[in-house]
């Protein structure tokens, strides 16, 4: 078994060197594909990180009328918290709202002065609602509108809900991210198919060059695995080299993009590359191995009737 494996590895590497130019072409095409796979992976991470970031900022704010009673607000908060879609409800009292307002406008003399003129606190309390998923906000917003409709007109509680302003922005963002992800997957699939075809032809060329050797192998009763093994191994070697090459090419790119992504998405792509190197290596080199082996197996079954 071991002897057989050793011979297969040996023959696979010889095949690789003998067809150096063809091998080079296959490795380059594979590198392009794996580069796209790697980029999709990294861009996906980037988009996800920014999406998480933005989603975290999204919430529904329910502003109460200033005259609202705290116990009614707490009641509303409890009923909201009972909803399965709601992750968190934060209550901001009138006083807290005022302090926050003053803090925010502390450099704005005019506003502070106007506030002082009023004497009374003009701000209402508010509830900030967070859902687990962006898509769940609609349901929560509907629940709140129902509450608003059903409340006693003489003793109103809810002043306004800011969901419907946010709604459009959230939907647009989700759509953009979805489109980018779909687009990158389509590009990846097209390139994967191209790679399989080109590697297939490369291996076919290699088979053609060594057809004499193959006929002799069959003549002396070589098992199918003995004949196929080296070609499959050759494909795997293409994959490994292309994978490592891809990781090397990605390194300066993420190094250069790192600070920019940090500033824009609050997600440093370079730190991700370094931090998840094992994972990236596994996925990219692994895809290379699978691609190479797949193309070789296809080529052999198609062109080598053993």
């Amino acid at each position: 078994m071991w002897t057989g494996f050793k011979r297969m590895v040996h023959a696979g590497f010889i095949g690789f060197w003998r067809n150096a130019y063809v091998s080079l072409a296959a490795v380059f095409v594979m590198t392009v594909t794996l580069f796209v796979v790697g980029s999709v992976l990294l861009v996906g991470q980037l988009l996800n990180a920014s999406l998480v970031e933005i989603r975290d900022k999204v919430d529904i704010n329910v502003y109460m009328v200033p005259s609202a009673q705290e116990e009614d607000i707490v009641k509303l908060q409890t009923s909201l918290e009972a909803l399965p879609d709601v992750r968190e409800v934060t209550y901001t009292s009138r006083e807290e709202a005022l302090t926050a307002f003053q803090e925010r406008h502390k450099d704005d003399e005019l506003t502070i002065q106007a506030l002082d003129e009023l004497g009374d606190n003009p701000l209402g309390a508010s509830l900030a609602i967070r859902a687990a998923e962006t898509s769940q906000y609609e349901g929560i917003a509907n629940f709140i509108s129902d509450q608003q409709i059903n409340e006693d007109p003489a003793n109103p509680l809810i002043d306004r809900v800011n969901y419907f302003q946010n709604k459009e922005a959230i939907e647009k963002l989700t759509a953009i991210i979805g489109a980018v992800e779909r687009g990158s997957y389509i590009a990846m699939i097209i390139l994967v198919i191209a790679t399989v075809l080109i590697t297939l032809n490369t291996v076919r060329l290699a088979i053609f060059t060594s057809r004499e050797e193959i006929s002799v192998m069959r003549l002396v009763g070589a098992s199918n695995m003995f004949i196929r093994g080296p070609f499959i191994l050759q494909g795997i070697v293409y994959g490994i080299i292309a994978g490592v090459l891809t990781l090397l090419v990605l390194y300066p790119i993420v190094l250069w993009l790192g600070p920019a992504t940090e500033g824009f998405f609050q997600f440093n792509i370079f730190s991700y590359y370094i931090g998840h190197f094992g994972y990236l290596f596994f996925v990219i080199v692994g895809s290379g191995i699978v691609l190479g082996a797949l193309a070789s197996i296809l080529a052999i079954t198609r062109y080598l009737r053993v």
Partner: peptide
């Protein structure tokens, strides 16, 4: 065992390797 008119030896292998190859192929 098969023998042909055109020998079908592998040109890049020595006599020894050509014979050994048949045994390698048989594991």
């Amino acid at each position: 065992g098969t023998v042909f008119q055109d020998f079908k030896l592998l040109p890049h292998k020595t006599a020894w390797e050509n014979v050994a190859f048949a045994m390698e192929a048989n594991g």
